[in-house]
Design a protein around this nucleic acid. Structure first.
Length: 559
RNA sequence: UGGGGCGUAGCCAAGCGGUAAGGCAGCGGACUUUGGCUCCGCCAUCCGUAGGUUCGAAUCCUACCGCCCCAGCCA
């Protein structure tokens, strides 16, 4: 049974209830011409989700009808990403190219019925004959060839007798139709190009319109779900189904694709970002690709949750990126282990702590999940704390460390700042503090309170680390809006590398791909660039930060 | 001026003639050994606009306005 309701699930439920279909069969049909992104995730969750909820099945079908743009690398990555997202197509892995022979026979069928013809016009001439949005097209001089001649020509197209672009096979429908897709759409074009699957077996390839619906029919797809821009193609989809002896009659339904603020979900643009070196690759942690999000540390569950949250409808929409961040934090808060990491270190010396003493203090791994247990973190006389956690002249709402102030070091001791050490330039380089031995573990026997709890690291034991801080790839919520070039909106500071960070000893050799919480900072994922003794972490997302918000508001409100 | 869609809060989105769900964001508060989490409260007299039908309209009708998609031998 469906967990939620939307217009598509309503349709499926009704079709099942009336007996129109015994079982629901959907499909996710990517073209292997790029990596999957979070927009595809919405479609994957929809298609696989509906099949799951109604006890049907969902096929993975590669829509590989254009060898010029398609590559095996993309096929492999797509399979990996769909699996990672948490879905399984079982035995149902298909390729449109599996159906090339059948599609060819159906093309012949239409030629024999006088419903398709070989056109000798050039691409430019075809465009000129197509007319415009408000003016009807004009018929090609080759439109009335006999079936015999068309058959001969089509066979010779297949045999490789003609160069690319010299001829096409077109459906013979209506050059004056308001729907431009009916103005004799191209069914086959000549492409002497090696296909990742069929190699050089073919030099003519079916168009999307001639392949998609029939592929659905062959596989017994009941509900062929696609995005809004294909609405105009539906009558053509139906026309081929009605005019061909196909084994089933699938129906097409459209929904609004996912858009997110501060990002772009267009394979064309993503490919350009990669090719022009604006990012380091398809899996750059700033990319909205599934491989990028994975490398960044986003859990698959969070992405599925987002899909559920935004729902499915037919109105164009742009979802605020904050909703994704919420979904991700929600999952990570429950599941991520807590660790200490200091990104911008400031030295603290505890003057009344014995020179060579080391204590191993017990710290909870996840206060949200007691079963996660505890770990031990070394504590000593010299520590690192976060530079942002100290201010020499604290404003009213700042309640972290300041001269004369007492704060708690998480799971350790209360410390009080006695003295500030500066260098010649006046920069604070060290804090001299004292600790209260009675507060071991982080609470005072006399019940006295502190207003802040800081994370910390024993300087002697801390492991050096590189931390990469990420921000949205685009500064504008709507990149390219107002007539700007998209690329002008790229944030040059979307990645900040902090090479002098420290992490606790347990993270010196982290599990690559695992996302942990650096307490009070955010979630961080160990990157494959990590080397033994030189861990690299990607900031997945910050924790919500009330203090940062107050500061930002203060800056804005200042006179 | 052709064809196809869509307009409910800052952003998503329920609602299907009986008097506006939920989530995100925001605001206020409680709690707190993460300024996190959690919890509580606030946040559309109104559903693109204008008419009409009805005892009753976001839901039905009419007109208008706005936005999106289509003129690849891409998908």
């Amino acid at each position: 049974m469906p967990e939620r309701s939307d217009f598509l699930r309503d349709i499926v439920a009704a079709d099942l209830a009336t007996g129109k279909h015994e079982t629901v069969v959907t499909r996710f049909p990517p073209e292997p011409n790029g990596y999957l992104h979070i927009g595809h995730a919405k479609s994957i969750c929809l298609n696989f989700g509906i099949a799951q909820e109604f006890g049907g099945r969902c096929h993975l079908r590669f829509d590989d009808t254009n060898p010029v743009k398609e590559e095996q690398e993309y096929i492999d990555s797509i399979e990996e990403d769909v699996r990672w997202l948490g879905f399984d197509w079982g035995e149902h892995l298909y390729y449109a190219s599996d159906y090339f022979e059948q599609l060819y026979e159906w093309a012949v069928h239409l030629i024999k019925a006088g419903k398709a013809y070989v056109d000798d016009l050039s691409a430019d001439e075809i465009r000129e004959h197509r007319g415009t949005l408000t003016e009807p097209g004009t018929e090609s001089p080759w439109r009335n060839r006999t079936p015999e001649e068309n058959l001969d020509l089509f066979e010779r197209m297949r045999a490789g007798e003609f160069p690319d672009g010299s001829r096409v096979l077109r459906a013979r429908i209506d050059m004056s139709a308001g729907n431009i897709n009916f103005r004799d759409p191209v069914m086959y074009r000549i492409l002497h190009s090696t296909h990742p699957r069929t190699a050089d077996a073919w030099c003519i390839y079916p168009s999307y319109d001639f392949a998609h619906g029939q592929s659905d029919a062959i596989e017994g797809i009941t509900h062929s779900i696609c995005t809004l821009e294909f609405q105009d193609h539906r009558p053509l989809y139906d026309w081929f189904i009605e005019n061909l002896p196909v084994p089933s009659t699938p129906r097409q339904y459209e929904f609004a694709r996912l858009n997110l603020t501060h990002t772009v979900l267009s394979k064309r643009v993503l490919l350009k970002l990669v090719n022009e070196g604006h990012v380091r690759g398809w899996d750059d942690p700033r990319m909205p690709t599934l491989s990028g999000l994975r490398r960044r540390g986003f859990p698959a569950e969070g992405i599925r949750d987002l899909a559920a949250m935004v729902g499915v409808a037919r109105a164009d929409s742009v979802v605020e990126i904050e909703m994704l961040e919420h979904a991700v934090r929600d999952v990570l808060n429950r599941t991520a282990l807590r660790r200490f990491g200091v990104i911008d270190p400031l030295k603290v010396v505890i003057e009344n702590y014995p020179e060579d003493q080391v204590e191993h203090l017990e710290v909870p791994n996840n206060p949200e999940d007691e079963s996660a247990g505890t770990r031990t973190v070394p504590f000593s006389r010299e520590l690192w704390i976060e530079r942002d956690d100290f201010m020499e002249e604290p404003p009213a709402k700042f309640f972290r460390l300041a001269p004369g102030r007492e704060v708690r070091l998480r799971s350790a001791y209360f410390i009080t700042c006695d003295r500030v050490v500066k260098d010649a330039a006046g920069t604070v380089v060290e804090l001299r503090c004292t600790y209260d031995p009675a507060t071991r573990g982080g609470s005072s026997p006399d019940g006295r309170k502190v207003k802040a709890t800081l994370h910390w690291l024993s300087a002697e034991h801390a492991a050096p680390a590189t931390v990469r801080l990420y921000d949205h790839l685009f500064t504008s919520p709507h990149p390219g809006s107002g007539g700007r070039d998209l690329f002008e909106d790229l944030d040059p500071d979307s990645e900040t590398v902090c090479a002098s960070a420290f992490v606790e000893p347990s993270l010196a050799e982290p599990v690559v791909g695992q996302t942990v919480q650096f307490e009070r900072l955010g979630y961080f994922c160990a990157d494959p660039d990590s080397a033994p003794g030189a861990p690299v972490f990607n900031r997945t997302v910050t924790l919500k930060d009330t203090w940062a918000k107050l500061q930002a508001a203060g800056r804005q409100g200042a006179p």
